[in-house]
């Protein structure tokens, strides 16, 4: 069966889009937080999220992904990035591709073309989740309060990404650079995590970046 069926533009240019944290009014809060904030939160909103599934052991699949994205399939618990595009390992046969807002339709078509004829799946999940970027010297302290996973650099170096328990819920923690972490959260949990992060980072000083 062709992989090129039933794919359409899910983000019409004329439509008004609201991120899962639209109601929090992060734009209005930007710059009003603590001057020497230990934690700075920024929502990387409305990006294109694509879930890619296929057989990692099949060279045709790995080759097709590399051809379409210019990124190698990451191995377990890691992510690779080039510019604003990142590819993350979620499971042995599942990856999360995050691309700049608006480009997900083109990228999906390109991937489907490169993987034509293979047993694969690409699902646009952009509307279902969002990314929160946490930067600052105290981010690790906030993570330590929230999750039982060991976030020490010896266990959690930059470039690693794990799905785990966080604040009695679940999310994916991505360590993208030193002192820069990303939380991949479900849309329906975004308000809960936002409240949790405000509370957890209050003692270190919280600032918002638009």
């Amino acid at each position: 069966m062709s992989n090129l069926i039933n794919v359409y533009q899910q983000r019409p240019a004329a439509a008004h889009a609201e991120s899962p944290l639209f109601h929090a009014g992060l734009e209005q809060l930007a710059g009003k937080g603590s001057a020497r904030a230990g934690v700075t939160v920024r929502e990387k909103k409305l990006l294109g999220h694509l879930t890619l599934r296929g057989d990692a052991k099949d060279p045709a699949f790995a080759g097709g992904v590399h051809k379409a994205l210019g990124l190698e399939l990451p191995v377990a618990l890691t992510l690779v990035a080039a510019g604003d595009t990142s590819l993350q390992w979620l499971a042995p046969d599942e990856w999360l591709l995050i691309v700049p807002s608006g480009s997900e339709f083109a990228v999906e078509q390109k991937l489907r073309e490169a993987l034509e004829g293979q047993h694969i799946s690409i699902v646009n999940v952009s509307g279902g989740q969002t990314l929160l970027e946490l930067t600052g010297p105290k981010v690790r302290e906030v993570l330590m309060k929230s999750t039982s996973y060991d976030v020490h650099p010896s266990n959690f170096p930059a470039g690693k990404a794990v799905g785990t328990h966080f604040a009695k819920s679940q999310l994916v923690i991505r360590h993208t650079a030193e002192d820069t972490w990303e939380l991949l959260i479900r849309r329906s949990f975004s308000d809960y995590f936002w409240l949790w992060l405000q509370d957890a980072s209050a003692e270190f000083g919280l600032a918002i970046k638009a």
Binding site: A76, A91, P92
Partner: peptide, 10 residues
């Protein structure tokens, strides 16, 4: 699959 020790609650 992950290749590491993880907490029981997961």
């Amino acid at each position: 699959h992950c290749g590491e020790l993880r907490s029981e609650e997961e």
